[in-house]
């Protein structure tokens, strides 16, 4: 399987006191269309890894390559453009822009990417329909429940048809019913559209259906479980 995202000797040190290596050395290859789950105890470097994979932070050493493009070769603007078009993010606390309605939040990445208005309108409607949020399109985040906000966040992450979606504890702030709904949403987009997902989660429900489970400990990959026949293409 061809890797769409590769991390090589990835390390991140934070300048706290004498310096703390939150991520010591991680090598990881994410196949196209795979559903990858990263799991591990708190403080083991999962979120740091995800931030580096998403170009939200710069590694202290090592590099990340997405679709053949090395992050180290990109300046801040280049990295922003890459995030805009090739990466979708889902956060634990939803992080919708509170000034915008649900449909405006979904449309935002497309507007940032400069898509034509007609296309933005049709794709926004389609994504809200697909996530079951059409009836709440004109509502602001304050008027939505946690589950609904996360559905909108998923729609937003998929807006620009990204190469990969990175999710950081997407069900960490939801009850079990909403967690199951969100997991089902992820699985459906992975199964039906072949969307690549990398999800950081403690939720065993994600790991059950993953093509690859990365178990981390103390800033390193402790174990990497690859499962066959789970749909990676």
């Amino acid at each position: 399987m061809k890797a769409i995202l590769e991390a090589t000797a990835l390390g991140r040190r934070f300048p706290v006191g004498e310096g703390v290596w939150a991520l010591k050395r991680v090598d990881l290859a994410v196949p196209r269309g795979a559903f990858v789950v990263i799991t591990g105890p708190s403080g083991c470097g999962k979120t740091t890894l995800l931030n580096l994979l998403g170009g939200l932070d710069r590694p202290t050493r090592g590099d990340v390559v997405l679709k053949g493009l090395a992050y180290s070769r990109l300046d801040e603007s280049g990295l922003a453009r890459l995030r805009r078009t090739e990466i979708g993010f889902v956060f634990q606390f939803f992080n919708l822009l509170s000034d915008l309605t649900a449909e405006e939040n979904v449309a935002l990445p497309m507007r940032l990417a400069g898509l034509p208005p007609a296309e933005i309108t049709s794709r926004t409607a389609a994504l809200l329909e697909a996530t079951g949020m059409s009836h709440r399109a004109r509502h602001t985040p304050h008027e939505l429940s946690g589950g609904e906000q996360q559905r909108v966040a998923v729609a937003r992450a998929l807006a620009n048809d990204p190469a990969i979606v990175l999710a950081d504890e997407p069900t960490g702030n939801l009850d079990s019913k909403n967690s199951e709904d969100i997991m089902e949403l992820f699985r459906r987009f992975n199964r039906e559209k072949g969307q690549t997902f990398v999800v950081v989660s403690h939720d065993p429900g994600f790991a059950e259906h993953a093509d690859m489970v990365v178990r981390m400990r103390d800033g390193e990959v402790q174990a990497l479980e690859e499962r066959e026949g789970t749909g990676a293409c």
Partner: peptide, 15 residues
């Protein structure tokens, strides 16, 4: 901070 960070994460450039 969070909102502006999200804007950046979604691809808004620094400028």
């Amino acid at each position: 901070k969070t909102q502006l960070g999200v804007l950046k994460a979604l691809g808004a450039e620094d400028d």
